[in-house]
Design a protein around this nucleic acid. Structure first.
Lengths: 346, 346
DNA sequence: GTTAGCACTCTCGCCCCTTGAGTGCTAAGC
DNA sequence: GCTTAGCACTCAAGGGGCGAGAGTGCTAAC
């Protein structure tokens, strides 16, 4: 976009003032801004130009100017200085990152809660599993007659178990045999690779105990599928109400309802490249997000797994600060969960 | 309370009309009620009496009457006819109860979601674990050098596992020994009964492998503790906004914020006797619930475990219908999860 | 190209008025 | 002595009018 230096400075002043106050910004306010030695009238002319370019908007004739989504976009792309976290801020974030070593989904939940608290916006967190999980190891345990435990471990080091009951009396030897069969035939395969033919072959070998084997395998498939799917979590929904743009019930309700729907969460932006992405107003696909912005950071947690953590808020938000915090936080999470991470403590 | 038959009929008419319309009820409206052949003037006199008794209230001088919390209480205790579910309703509830056989906490979540949908109020569900869980069985599996899986099964038939890494090279024989030791010494004990002395004794026996044993035991304790604690879940928070009493943001916000706090959920009513309990307005202890009512049903799910499922809404609610639905639903959940329940399907 | 001046526009808050619903009281009726 | 018609009174809600204030666009001078 071809735009004079002065216009840029004015645009930036308008946006930053509006971010801070939530009130339309007039020419006089900008004129008072240090560093800009021009009269309100000149600024008015410039602002009219900026409006014509689609970077500013007027709520009504006699109000000040407000940034348009396009204006925010231009600001984010070209004008914004990436916020440098203060020492206090990094300390707060570090403290928040001291999550207890727990199951992955607990970490996700907790991270989301914390980010929501720090940013004052609702936050969502997603852990996207790897696309190709395989089972690394099976263990079949007999608890008592007709009661068994199957334990599977994936190549992503996840261990899951299930209690099985079935009306079949099997000997210890049969169990051991079955165990060996499972480990020989069904490890290292993705769920798609476990075909009916394969199952049939197994049936030949372990006729008596086939029911148990089938249950163990279908549990394994379930675990692999579960790993591959997204796990989304949302926190701090009602923080929306703390922001002036949502003082009006008519305006919040659709957004609240949208965000409380489980399935809606999966329509939230989920970028799979870069580190911090910003979606401003109509850049969002979901209809209910047309007046909101989403800032989301993604991070690598090793083993082909990725995580996302983001926030949802009004288009008027301090993108610089929010993006910096998310970036830092995601980075911390990556270190905490990622490839080189230390084993969980006890 | 000593109160004439006619007053009762008027009170009931007021309450039921108010429940249906959410508007203060005037004497004329009541007079038109079939079955009451008295003039508005007489009704006005009676209503003034009912107000003096604290059963009705007037929002302002020239408005109709509105039930007070005490009025609702009297209605619930003495006037209300328990709603009989229609065939359609039981069918809807039955359909909703067809939950997939899954982990307990998934069932809880799902049940809460469904009840919220059916009642149009936010719903909470709690599974209260038994107070004395013990471990029934340990299994220690070696995955590879320095990597182990510990599997524990409680007397409530819950199976949990954890992946352990520790810098100790143990032989298969050692593992088996440890396994036997664990099963001999640490099964059948509650977490309190696992004393430092007991641990010390174990240390003597299994010196080399003590670190692994200690980790297995502390995991077991963790699992027992987890079982004993409450697990609370809330669904459909934003449904509050669908009700006219919450059209005002000032009024909803505190309630929404209260209910979105994780820890606040544990201050929700959790009766441990009877089957359906109703808490009206100020009968709730929590400050944020002074203007809301809570209806909660409890049910037995065997093994000394209990579940609760309840809803939160304005004091103006159709107690008869809501209570009947919760009762039916809780009953269904008890059958589904309870002592005589069939084993999970596959 | 910049700026002072000015008329114009539009929102917001305020006051006032009307309307309508509902009450309590009084006096008459059964 | 209870019931009821009649009536004056009260109060919330909605609508119109008005002034203040903020900000604009245009014009003309610098």
């Amino acid at each position: 976009m071809d735009i004079s230096e002065r216009k840029k400075r004015i645009l930036r002043a308008v946006i930053e003032d509006y971010i801070a106050t939530a009130e339309p910004v007039g020419s006089k306010t900008i004129a008072k801004h240090a560093g800009l030695d021009i009269s309100p009238a000149t600024i008015r002319n410039e602002m009219a130009d900026l409006e014509a370019m689609g970077l500013l908007e007027q709520p009504h004739t006699s109000a000040g100017r407000v940034p348009s989504p396009g204006g925010y976009r231009f600001y984010v792309n070209e004008l914004m200085e990436w916020h440098r976290l203060s020492i206090q801020e990094t300390e707060r974030l570090n403290a928040a990152l001291h999550l207890k070593a727990q199951e992955l989904d607990r970490v996700i939940t907790e991270a989301s809660r914390v980010i929501s608290q720090l940013t004052k916006y609702p936050s969502y967190a997603i852990s996207a599993g790897p696309s190709h999980v395989t089972i690394r190891r099976f263990d079949l345990l007999m608890v008592e007659r007709q009661t068994f435990i199957v334990v599977v471990m994936t190549d992503t080091n996840l261990v899951r178990n299930k209690l099985l009951r079935l009306p079949a009396d099997l000997s210890e030897t049969q169990i051991q045999l079955l165990n060996r069969l499972l480990n020989a035939s069904f490890t290292g395969l993705t769920s798609e690779e476990i075909t009916p033919e394969l199952m049939n072959m197994a049936k030949q070998t372990a006729e008596d105990a086939y029911a148990l084997l089938a249950m163990a395998v279908s549990f394994a498939i379930e675990v692999m599928k579960e790993q591959g799917t997204y796990d989304v979590h949302l926190s701090g929904l009602t923080r929306l109400l703390e922001h002036p743009e949502y003082r009006d019930l008519e305006r919040v309700q659709p957004l609240l309802s949208y965000l409380s729907e489980e399935k809606a969460l999966s329509t939230l932006p989920m970028p799979d490249d870069s580190q911090v992405k910003i979606y401003i107003g109509p850049e969002n696909v979901a209809g209910a997000l047309q007046d909101t912005s989403v800032v989301v950071a993604s991070y690598d947690i090793g083993d082909h797994m990725r995580g996302l953590i983001g926030i949802v808020g009004p288009t008027r938000m301090d993108y610089a600060k929010i993006a910096a915090r998310l970036y830092y936080f995601a980075d911390g999470l990556a270190k905490f969960l990622g490839p080189g991470a230390p084993p969980p403590e006890h």
